[in-house]
Design a protein around this nucleic acid. Structure first.
Lengths: 265, 265
DNA sequence: CGCGCTCTTGAGATTTATCAATGTCCGTGG
DNA sequence: CCACGGACATTGATAAATCTCAAGAGCGCG
């Protein structure tokens, strides 16, 4: 893994915001200019490391540059529920702008690079650009819509359909973010992690995974998700991407050069 | 049921906002004055009736004055998942301010009275009072935190613990909103509705309910929730109200006279 | 009085969990 | 270069939680 300078990286951070907000709305030139002025610092996180813990009062917003982050809680009996998985280009902790105290944890599922942007920086830009404020607010609401979909998925669907649904969401988001290659994308998480996303047992995840693999719809192995038959997968999952509120579901921007692509040769 | 005038009801609507926002933050006198200027109109909704449907583009925000609302989706196989339950004093559809298209449905679980406030009215107040904007944003984030907790509950907990958890949340929120009487509150929903909250079968809900009743911790009958042993219930549920982000968990305002209390004599 | 909605009960099927062991891959240190 | 350890994946056998189907009971309301 190459060493990242932990100094300020204005351009990179602004571009991530611009790209992400453009996926769910429209930015004016002035908005973009303001966003490019955002400053913060980049650092790397090891798998298993936490950025914020329950009860913390973060002063920064996090941006994922590479790797994979998780938002999770531990239930009373010590079981982990993963609430979200964040891929490069995502902005995990926007809601900390207006909720002071973390009611969950933010950590890394894989070695990752992130940028941290002070709240004050974002407040500065938002008060200058009402439209940016509206879109960042919308971003938090889209994340809320995803929570609802996950609730439906985990509560109402059978294991194989749940899993297919999760894979559909991941590949759709990866394509929108420009971090997919065809119908594949990096998904550096273990079967145990997947179990804690879906609320299943690792053993059952393993067996379900083999069923999906046999159906030739999708494969999840070696930290990579490969969708072999998108139509079949979507049907298994009953997947409708509307809840992601992407401006255009078919959107597929050119590869995101500003993201630190984690290539394993 | 008494007939409500469907004319503008400035005072009532403003007071609901003031009370709700004061539960999760601080309003200045100027904020309150501005909120009292909100206008909208009141109407009643029958059980089973929908206010907004998937795909709609609402122009109003809804405020619950009496009864009980649900937010729900139908899964691919036609199963209903209830994502939220809204009691008097709650503001179900705030997120429609910045998400144009509904990705779920908003309907009534019981005959209810609601007020509808045009988006333009809220935008007017929010642009005059940044603090009101921040608190309304926070309100949407708190709703997101509740989604996360429901995800954890439905994915990780056993039926009886899930149910205890839901009841804990309801009584806590009812107390905070001032619509509880001691350790009881109105909860006008059926066992089938409860099943679609918890992602269980109505049959299993019925059996689990009897277990809880026998444990003498809680009773849910005749549209009323009665918590007999709060400590035992909370322990069963592993309940920690932190995710509700109430300013003070022990807060118990005087009975909300401005809410149209639905009294069944 | 009877109909519809909700609640209750029973018996058996299905899904998923649990426990425990084995297998595989890979990096590290001797 | 090989042995070892650790993390992750796979397998088998059994148990537990929950679902399905089906029928009956209670009760409010027209």
């Amino acid at each position: 893994m190459d060493q990242q300078p932990s100094s300020s990286q204005h351009t990179v951070i602004g571009e991530v915001f611009i790209r992400r907000l453009n996926l769910i709305g429209h930015l004016s030139d002035a908005d973009c200019r303001a966003l490019r002025s955002l400053t913060g610092h980049v650092r790397s996180v090891a798998r298993g490391e936490d950025l914020f813990r329950l009860g913390d009062q973060p002063g920064d917003v996090v941006v994922v540059l590479s790797g994979l982050l998780q938002r999770y809680t531990l239930s009373a009996e010590g079981r982990r529920q993963i609430h979200s998985v964040y891929m490069p280009g995502d902005i995990p902790s926007v809601e900390s702008l207006h909720i002071d105290r973390m009611d969950n944890n933010l950590g890394a599922l894989a070695p990752s690079h992130i940028a941290q942007v002070p709240h004050s920086e974002l407040h500065r830009v938002m008060s200058a650009c009402p439209n940016v404020l509206a879109l960042i607010w919308r971003e938090t609401l889209v994340q809320g819509a995803i929570f609802r979909e996950w609730l439906m998925r985990n509560s109402q669907m059978l294991a194989h359909a749940q899993m297919a649904h999760f894979f559909c969401e991941m590949i759709t988001r990866a394509k929108a973010a420009g971090v997919a290659e065809g119908n594949s994308c990096a998904l550096p998480m273990t079967q145990d992690d997947l179990a804690d996303v879906l609320g299943l047992t690792p053993v059952h995840v393993n067996r379900t995974l083999m069923v999906l693999r046999a159906s030739d719809a999708v494969e999840f192995q070696g930290s990579t998700l490969q969708v072999r038959d998108p139509a079949k997968l979507a049907e298994l999952a009953g997947f409708d991407p509307a809840y992601l509120h992407l401006r255009s579901a078919s959107q597929q921007p050119e590869s995101g050069s500003f993201l630190l692509a984690e290539r394993q040769p």
